[in-house]
């Protein structure tokens, strides 16, 4: 906790917390990055569920790179926003759940990508087994939960510690 307070009281943390435009600008990056990451993952989920079956998974090799750019955009803007209220965020239930859902969402996408990669050895499967489709639904819901818990941080963040 001392370390988190030190981050908050650092020049960077103070600047982001107090400047009129720093936090809004970072939130702008965070919103665009969210749309890229979650949007790309949802398209992947929909494709596995049978949406546009004629489209080969080749399409996602380049979209994956774009999605990673979005992810790092949000990692950077997220870490910077974190410095402004580190000690309050770490104890915030919605923040904790958001981190958990991100890990779970990431794991499901990683698992799905493995299944898809195995399929490409032969012909692409006309349809995925129900178990795989179920994971695609769960994956989409995890990323939905990331959005909801993320938005609710704004409503549940405690007062500053100084």
């Amino acid at each position: 906790m001392n370390f988190l307070l030190w981050i908050e009281r650092s020049w960077l943390g103070q600047f982001i917390a107090s400047d009129t435009y720093a936090a809004p600008a970072l939130l702008c990056f965070h919103a665009v990055g969210m749309g890229i990451v979650v949007g790309a993952i949802w398209m992947y989920n929909f494709r596995i569920l049978g949406f546009s079956r004629r489209m080969s998974f080749t399409a996602f090799t380049n979209l994956k790179r774009v999605a990673w750019i979005g992810f790092f955009l949000n990692l950077a803007s997220g870490v910077l926003l974190f410095t402004a209220s580190a000690s309050r965020l770490i104890v915030n239930l919605n923040f904790q759940l958001k981190m958990l859902f991100m890990v779970l969402g990431g794991l499901t996408v990683w698992w799905l990508a493995r299944v898809v990669a195995q399929g490409s050895e032969r012909e692409e499967p006309a349809s995925f087994p129900m178990g795989v489709k179920a994971i695609a639904v769960v994956s989409a819901l995890f990323w939905c939960a990331v959005i909801f818990t993320g938005r609710y941080i704004a409503y549940t963040l405690g007062p500053p510690n100084f």
């Binding site: 919103a31 749309g35 979209l63």
Partner: peptide, 23 residues
């Protein structure tokens, strides 16, 4: 927002040539 942007990424990036190999 994410549905809209994700969908447009697939369509527009295909038109722009960033996504290749699919019609």
């Amino acid at each position: 927002l994410s549905l809209l942007l994700g969908s447009l990424l697939v369509v527009d990036l295909r038109v722009l040539g960033v996504i290749r190999g699919v019609s």
